[in-house]
Design a protein around this nucleic acid. Sequence first.
DNA 1: ACCCACCTTCACTCACATAATCACAATAAG
DNA 2: CTTATTGTGATTATGTGAGTGAAGGTGGGT
Lengths: 263, 263
Amino acid sequence: MISNDSDDPESIAVDQLEAFGLSTYAARTFVALTGLGEGTAKDVSALAEVPRTRVYDATAELREHGLVDVQQSTPKRFTAVSAETTGRRFHRQYTRRADALTAALDEIEPVSPTGEQRGVWTVTGREMVSDRVVEFVDDASEEIVLVTLDVLLTDAVVDALRSAADRGVAVRVSGMDFSATDGSDDRLPDGCGFESPRTWSGVPAGRLLMVDGRRTLASVLVDGNGEHPPAPRDETAIWGAGENNSLVVVLRAMFTWLNGDGE
Amino acid sequence: MISNDSDDPESIAVDQLEAFGLSTYAARTFVALTGLGEGTAKDVSALAEVPRTRVYDATAELREHGLVDVQQSTPKRFTAVSAETTGRRFHRQYTRRADALTAALDEIEPVSPTGEQRGVWTVTGREMVSDRVVEFVDDASEEIVLVTLDVLLTDAVVDALRSAADRGVAVRVSGMDFSATDGSDDRLPDGCGFESPRTWSGVPAGRLLMVDGRRTLASVLVDGNGEHPPAPRDETAIWGAGENNSLVVVLRAMFTWLNGDGE
DNA sequence: ACCCACCTTCACTCACATAATCACAATAAG
DNA sequence: CTTATTGTGATTATGTGAGTGAAGGTGGGT
């Protein structure tokens, strides 16, 4: 199958514009106008694969978004705004949307977000797991224990750990692969040394996290199901919350055992 | 007609989520889960107007976006991530989209953006006109002359004027209504006094802009066609570029005449 | 003044995606 | 073993947008 989303700038721009809610005609028309700088309906129809009679609808749609100006002459001439203005406009618009969404959800959200949980929840996707890690770390008030692969220690996670350490939380981080983190990662705050990395060699690679002894998360990297490119391996995690949560109990025991072993 | 987009938090959240590309089932399911904190398919179906058998598809869709975690039990239980995480996630995602779009469009954009233009272009919408003003001001290298209503002097415009003044451009701003800008607006940099505001009283309200004597813009506020709410009046602008552009010639003559009159 | 070419708008069909409903299998509880 | 309930799949309907064609209007050329 011939994938539509090639990697040439035109296709990328069209895809992104469609993601921002524009119709395909509008997106293609805008890209064509960006390349032309200025042009008539015929010009656009020739360059982009847009029926000439529909260029007018497309430009009307673009005009409502403030992306195209029109010259009232015969034939009508159209021009697209600059790339920076376009990017800034969408950025502003969707930042506002995100803020409105957060505000609305905040009103809906019930009061007790961190209650006792019975079961174990599952998350998939590397970025999604990182988000949960950050979320848990941000909620920490006393202690954070994290064992992670180096590649999974993204900037967002490091930032969250830093701010936790700054607010007085005891942060203890250890790497699973004993390649880089010989002593402690240079990006992390001081006093994060936890346990010799070698302790964890042989453990199925991923992350282990415990926050305040009440929230735990465990993840593994699972091979993508025979995908064509090198397939950055997908991550699957489970997490649980609450003092008596089964996963919390298991991991807490595991951590205290290993920690007590070290002393 | 009963408008679907009411102003209660639930409807706002659903609308925003749909704007971010989610299906209505997924949006409604997520909002219901945010209110519940945790629940089964039946719970969601009862609270949100979603068929029970479709809750599973909706949660699958939400899971791919990292917005919902699943508990593998019978019955399955679902939980939504926090409001802040949701907002941050979408903000990140669409910031990246905007950046990718800008980069792609930059590659497409031809080299000479500021050529000689024959005709006169039209723009509608207050925000769209402000964007053009900012765009022109940002491209200024020598001189900026702006006459504007106070309400149209938004922060974005002021910022653009500031940065232009900082880079050595002669900025001269004047207000049309002689209410606030007695001498000079306190938000503006120094040395922007241009002409007594009274000169412009009686001129159809809007803005007049000239940049480097090569680009001009004129706008007026036009009454919204009998809209129900107070209807913030819409703005319509025309602009032209090039030394010999008709609009440029007219406005340049106008400005130099008034300026020479003042001396 | 007429004709012709082109531009512009409008109306229509078709296809696809999503909403919505139903039927059936699987599981757990009594 | 029965039964209610849960999960999965197939199926239909509906609405939106892509694609096409026809008709009206405008300007230029003869």
